[in-house]
Design a protein around this nucleic acid. Structure first.
Length: 599
RNA sequence: GCCGACGUAGCUCAACGGUAGAGCACCUGUCUUGUAAACAGGCGGUUACCGGUUCGAAUCCGGUCGUCGGCUCCA
């Protein structure tokens, strides 16, 4: 990608907010160079919610340093120093930044174009701007953290220290932002996963391999059953292809060349050719399965879906809770079809994705068209003609459905372009969930074929497609999206029955059985504790229905119903409750219907 | 993998060179409870692990494992 062009685009579009935050980065750099005269500067752009600046420093920064830097920044702001722009020649710039190797590298790259520096007080930085008029204008800010960051984002380069800051127009907005961060921490799926007894990890099992407790497994099961049933309704068929695959298959498919560093090491069997790997992706297996059968064009499209667990050796520093794991379960599907069928299959996949995401309350999404970077020949298989056909097929499918999309270069899979669905959760954070990929490359490599109307063999197109992505990651996202308060249909425990005294336990157990008979997941809290305590704990466990049974209920064969969140629906016959709950569950309502039933 | 921070009882945290402590949870007992925490007693830690410095280490140093914040990567 032409570097300068890109920079120009960014600058022309720099909003007033970005300009303000960019100026914040400069003031931070001024403070850092005050405290560390030997500091070498990287770059300091505005980002979402704030800014950062990268430095090479004589020692690691501590939280105390951040306080000191913040203090200096406030002094600079109080002094209200003017930002002055000055155009410079390449030579002047080189002199000015002679002791700044990173700046010199940039100067060299920008060439003789219009170089400029910005100065406020004694601090000068190579910068195209624009900036605010003076430091006094800067908005309220707070320095957040220090982190390592490679110079220019490449692992081959030295690692610099990056300081992140956040900045908003008013103290109130800054405070709101900090509160949002705090709220996100409260909803962190790792915290909720422990508190709600969903999943855990053990160093004895291994990093990145989540262990699901009964309630967490119930969630997985319900989620996967839902997608599976929906897929079946949409004409997909489910297959199973195991967890081990011969290494040779990944040589043929090309995956080994592209992803060997992320695959677990091989396992050697007895025979020389018996070299196995843990399955890191399904595509070659599904294509191999396809090849075991003879196919006519009349069989197509053939839609092979599978929920099997894949193993990827993600680097240790990349692991994070359920959102980045080494054992992952994709809701994967490979559609074998003719080129003419691409659009129809694409539409079918989109409709499925829309239905599933909206059921989960994730209706706010955008589509990214992930294309190859034609200059990056390492990352993408070279076959100009096939790439063009695949990209054209994807674009025309999106256009035909009137879906807006944003093309992004370099984000494609190695074998083809993708349409990626980026959904926003309840906290406004964006996640990549669904994906639809067009593949003209792998089916040919693995010799997939069907007999066409002309009686001749042809190579099918394969559409790769995932709806929720992986069960693990999607569950992590759902936990945070719902803050642990799942819709009733998903809740591992849908009703907690609380007998008031020990003598009500028999009725409570009888009630649990009646609910179980209608497919409702209910448990009895039969501890000899006070009602208040049991209610409190059921609420903290975010169980949708709390059912209290005491003398009154036993006598009238009824149940006292309290909805998660505290609303008391009062007593009702058991029959009414089951109808209420069944309706909630069957409709997959996002929140329990709180209107009390008609008397 | 890289940079930095962190790892004390199941959980949340205290002690920060001088014999490791609290609340909750758990166990036992009493209470038999009507819509968000009854009362009392008890159990529980080679301070992640291994090594070093020291008269003495949870505390200082080195290594390993793990977690977190980032970077990088993501079929």
């Amino acid at each position: 990608m032409p570097e300068d062009t890109n920079v120009d685009v960014v600058e022309k579009e720099m909003t007033p907010v970005e300009r303000m935050r960019h100026s914040g980065a400069h003031v931070m750099a001024e403070a850092v160079t005050d405290l560390f005269p030997e500091a070498r500067l990287g770059i300091g752009p505005p980002i979402e919610n704030g800014f950062y600046y990268d430095f090479e420093l004589p020692r690691p920064l501590t939280p105390d340093d951040l306080d000191a830097i913040e203090g200096r920044m406030r002094e600079s702001i109080a002094a209200d120093k003017r930002f002055e722009r000055r155009p410079v020649t390449k030579e002047e710039a080189e002199n000015l930044f002679s002791d700044q190797p990173y700046k010199l590298e940039l100067i060299n790259e920008f060439g003789d174009g219009s170089l400029s520096v910005y100065q406020h007080g004694d601090f000068v930085d190579l910068c195209r701007g624009p900036h605010v008029a003076s430091t006094g204008e800067l908005w309220p800010f707070k320095l957040m953290s220090v982190a390592g960051a490679y110079w220019r984002g490449s692992e081959k380069n030295p690692m610099l220290q990056r300081i992140y800051g956040t900045m908003f127009p008013t103290e109130e907005e800054l405070e709101e932002h900090l509160q949002r961060l705090e709220m996100a921490r409260e909803r962190d799926h790792r915290k909720l996963g422990r508190e709600l007894g969903l999943f855990t990890f053990s160093p004895d099992i291994g990093s990145g391999i989540p262990l699901f407790l009964p309630r967490g497994e119930m969630l997985r099961h319900v989620m996967e059953s839902y997608v599976r049933d929906t897929q079946t309704r949409y004409g997909y068929q489910h297959v199973w292809t195991g967890n081990l695959v011969k290494r040779e298959l990944y040589v043929k498919s090309g995956h080994l060349a592209h992803y060997s560093d992320v695959m677990f090491p091989v396992m050697q069997g007895e025979g020389e050719s018996e070299v196995y790997m843990l399955k890191p992706m399904n595509c070659p297996s599904h294509m191999t399965l396809y090849n075991t059968q003879y196919h006519s064009y009349r069989d197509l499209p053939l839609r092979y879906a599978e929920f099997s667990t894949l193993y990827r050796y993600e680097r240790s520093g990349e692991l994070a809770g359920l959102t980045r794991v080494r054992a992952l379960t994709q809701d994967d599907c490979h559609i074998f079809c003719t080129e003419d069928q691409i659009q129809e299959e694409f539409t079918r996949a989109i409709e499925l994705i829309r239905e599933v995401l909206s059921t989960y309350g994730l209706s706010d999404y955008r589509v990214q068209l992930s294309l190859r970077d034609p200059h990056d020949t390492d990352k993408f298989v070279a076959d100009e003609e096939k790439w063009n056909r695949a990209e054209e097929a994807l674009r025309s499918s999106l256009d035909a459905l009137g879906i807006e999309y944003e093309p992004v270069l370099g984000e494609a899979a190695f074998y083809g372009p993708k349409a990626d669905f980026m959904a926003k959760d309840a906290l406004g954070r964006e996640w990549q969930l669904s994906t639809i990929q067009i593949d003209f490359i792998q089916p040919a490599r693995l010799n997939c074929e069907y007999i066409g109307e002309d009686g001749q063999p042809h190579t099918p197109v394969v559409i790769h497609r995932a709806v929720t992505g992986t069960t693990e990651r999607f569950l992590g996202i759902l936990i945070e999206h719902f803050g642990g308060a799942f819709p009733t249909w998903l809740s591992p425990v849908q009703a907690m029955i609380l007998p008031i005294a020990d003598r009500h336990q028999e009725y409570a157990r009888h009630l649990a059985q009646r609910l179980a008979d209608t497919g409702i997941r209910a448990e009895v809290d039969d501890r000899s504790e006070r009602l208040q305590l049991k209610i409190r704990e059921a609420q903290l466990q975010k169980i949708p229905y709390t059912l209290v049974v005491g003398n009154r209920e036993v006598e009238t064969d009824s149940v006292s119903v309290r909805i998660r969140g505290g609303q008391d629906l009062g007593s009702m016959p058991v029959e009414t409750l089951t109808q209420l709950m069944r309706r909630d569950i069957d409709q997959k309502a996002l929140t329990p219907p709180i209107e009390p039933p008609a008397a």
